[in-house]
């Protein structure tokens, strides 16, 4: 499974658990518009860390939290192996 599809699947799973109705997940959708609150994002980052072994937001101290779904996915794609 590609990194992107892993991330999207995790987002959908958490949305289901949190009873959040997601809009269509396009790359330029702002994270704010996903309907996720900070707790939902915290859960997402923790689960992705368990699945992929990385937490791109803790590794780099100056990493700004991404603004869009595309940025978020790229944060995981760009982690050096």
């Amino acid at each position: 499974m590609s990194v992107k599809s892993k991330v999207i699947e995790a987002i959908r799973q958490i949305a289901k658990e949190q009873h959040v109705t997601l809009p269509e997940l396009s790359d330029d959708l702002s994270l704010h518009e996903t309907g996720f609150d900070s707790l939902a994002f915290a859960i997402l980052v923790a689960r992705l860390e368990d699945e992929t072994g990385v937490d791109p937001f803790t590794i780099s101290e100056d990493a700004a939290f991404p603004a869009t779904v595309g940025d978020f996915v790229r944060a995981y794609e760009n982690v050096p192996a």
Partner: peptide
């Protein structure tokens, strides 16, 4: 567990 988003989460 430490979280970069909320400081901590429950696991």
């Amino acid at each position: 567990r430490r979280s970069p988003i909320t400081g901590g989460i429950v696991v």
